[in-house]
Design a protein around this nucleic acid. Sequence first.
DNA 1: GACTCGTGGTC
DNA 2: TGACCAAGAGT
Length: 355
Amino acid sequence: MNEFAAALLNWFDQSGRKHLPWQVRDAYRIWISEIMLQQTQVATVVPYYERFIQRFPNVNALAAAPLDEVLHLWTGLGYYARARNLHRTAQQLIAHHQGMMPKTLDEVQSLPGIGRSTAAAILALSYELPHAILDGNVKRVLTRYFGIHGPTSNKQIEAQLWQRAQQCTPTTRVANYTQAIMDLGALVCTRSKPLCHACPLATQCIANVQTLQSQLPTPRPKRTRPQREVYVAVISDESDAILLQQRPASGIWGGLWVCPQFDDAESCHTFIHSKVTNAKSLQKMPVIQHSFTHFDLTLRPYWAANAIARTVIADETGYCWYHPHRPAHIGLAKPVLDILKYLQIATSAIEVSDV
DNA sequence: GACTCGTGGTC
DNA sequence: TGACCAAGAGT
């Protein structure tokens, strides 16, 4: 075994994480956790993972469930395409792989929502197959250890990192090694103020020897974030039901239910007047500011409270009335949760009525 | 290859 | 407090 892996594994035996909820010999649970953990911190994932596994303990349960219920359990976690892909992959596993996770990198990687790194993680953690992962933790460890300069978004830099990652991956204790290098990145080789005194690789680490920890990995070039502004029609009827509209499958909040949104206040008001008879109840709600990774969003909600609702236009698909006091499961966007919370409307039980 | 996708944490 | 990032992938 190479020196890098040997030192890392020795450290893992002493200091690694061994009791995370998904650290089991179960490819299904490992797959679910790897998807949830994409671009998402461990502490955020844990409660979502527990609820998800309790409701969908195996691939059969997940494949048989309606997509809306999967999205419901994903509400608030973000990157909702992950939930849609999870559902699609479950059905593909049933249809084409006897309900089992396949054991080759190409087969796993061809499944929806699973790229090279996630496929490698599933195979390494589930089956001890020696495939290298390359997530944010590994990139940070490797750029520092090997003194690799340049943004990791650069194709050549990334290729170099994949090569190093594969070179360091041992052929035995692969699952432990995979967990070890992630743990080192998360617990020791942190972005700021890394704990080099506690690092098993410190003496051979170029960044440590040359005091370049704060400069590696090279930060990605800056980008200015565009501003978006949306006017929101929050319409509730006398039974507190809220009018919701399902967003298209792709794009922001794909497949989720939100209050109808408009680019300008006038078309928002026109819509509200077309849906209610006593629009005098129209009032402004507090503005909701969202700061996403790639843009800033301003939501300006107008609330037509206790209005006498007209029926939803029959040929206008995608509208429903949200009944807070009846059980059902639909995916809600975070701003809708905030709005309903402000209106003191429960969100634990949801029903979608026919339009 | 640049852009998009969400939310919460950190400094 | 705003910039930056987190068990990345799809378009």
